[in-house]
Amino acid sequence: MTDAAYRESDATPGKPPGVAVERLVEVVALLRRHCPWTAALDHANLLQYLVEETYELYEVVDDVARTDEPDDELLEDLRGELGDVLFQVVLHAQLRAEAGSFGLAEVAEGLTAKLVRRNPHVFSPEGVLRSARPASVDDIVATWQAVKERETPARTSPFDGIPHHLPALAFAAKTLQRAGEERGGEAPPDDDEAEVGRQLLALTRRALSAGVDPERALRRATLDYQRHAAGDPEATA
């Protein structure tokens, strides 16, 4: 990729990340060599921390999103939680580097290439910034999906690639989105969101009163929906 692809990078606020990220990778590598606790970690026992840190970041991002002018303390919390999730990414990449597979540089290169490839309305195939702009958000989404389908030809169902370990509600929402059962891109009014939240809470209360695990019930219903949509005659709608 040529330097022309980064002509607008100087306008990005904040310090250049290069040196800081290189130091982070160095520190993680040193911890792996000199800290017995960190040295004992592997992909499997890191999973619990990845889930925990991701939910903590989710909570802070939601707090920021719901605040018109987040204060310094909240922004500091956001910065810290972003760092905790970044640590997980760097550590998993370090494990693969030690195994001789790839490192953080390859992860970043792969992500950059995918973003360029899936956003042809912004970048040329060489990664150079285009001057033209897309006609609509719908065009962008359609192009993204088309490129993604070309990248993963083995996926024959719209539900392929949805992680089954997602929380049941997120699993159901992603399934319905893939099935095209969603409203447009605009966020719902606050009163609509609050009412839906109350309804979900009431349904959860109903499930608990009936002795039903709401997480398991929704997960099973979503899997049935996927099978029904795929044409399984034994699946319930």
Rank of each mutant, 00 (worst) to 15 (best):
D3A: 15
D3Q: 13
A5C: 12
A5Y: 04
Y6P: 01
E8N: 11
E8G: 07
D10Y: 13
D10A: 14
A11N: 07
P13F: 05
P13H: 04
P13G: 05
P13Y: 04
G14S: 07
G14T: 08
K15W: 03
P16Q: 01
P16F: 07
V19R: 10
V25S: 06
V25K: 10
V27S: 01
P36Y: 02
P36W: 03
P36S: 06
W37Q: 11
W37F: 12
A40Q: 09
D42Y: 06
H43G: 07
A44Q: 14
N45E: 08
Q48L: 09
L50Q: 06
E56T: 02
E56M: 04
L57N: 04
Y58V: 05
D62M: 06
D62T: 07
D63Q: 12
V64N: 06
V64W: 04
V64E: 04
R66H: 07
E69V: 13
D71P: 10
D72I: 09
D72L: 11
L74S: 05
D77A: 08
L78M: 05
R79V: 05
R79S: 08
D84A: 03
V85R: 00
V85Q: 01
L86R: 05
F87L: 03
V90L: 11
L91T: 12
A93D: 09
L95E: 03
E98S: 07
A99Y: 04
S101I: 12
S101D: 15
G103D: 06
V107R: 03
V107S: 03
E109S: 12
K114E: 06
K114H: 10
R117G: 00
N119V: 06
N119Y: 04
N119M: 10
P120E: 03
V122L: 14
V122H: 06
F123L: 10
F123V: 11
P125T: 01
E126Y: 11
E126F: 07
L129R: 13
R130N: 03
R130P: 02
P134F: 08
A135Y: 02
V137W: 09
V137R: 12
D139G: 02
A142M: 08
W144Q: 02
Q145H: 10
E149D: 04
P153T: 04
A154N: 05
T156G: 10
S157L: 03
S157V: 01
D160G: 06
G161S: 04
G161L: 08
G161E: 04
I162K: 01
P163S: 05
H164E: 11
F171K: 00
A173G: 04
A173N: 05
K174I: 01
K174V: 05
K174C: 09
T175W: 00
T175M: 00
L176T: 05
A179I: 00
E182S: 13
G184L: 11
G185P: 15
D190R: 12
D192P: 02
D192V: 15
D192A: 13
E195H: 15
G197E: 13
R198E: 15
R198P: 08
L200F: 13
L201D: 15
L201Q: 15
L203H: 15
L203E: 15
T204L: 12
R205Q: 15
R206C: 12
R206L: 15
L208T: 14
S209W: 09
A210G: 07
G211T: 07
G211S: 08
V212G: 11
V212F: 11
D213Y: 03
E215Y: 09
R216W: 04
A217W: 11
A217Q: 12
L218D: 08
R220Y: 00
A221T: 01
G231A: 01
P233G: 03
E234Y: 02
E234M: 02
A237F: 00
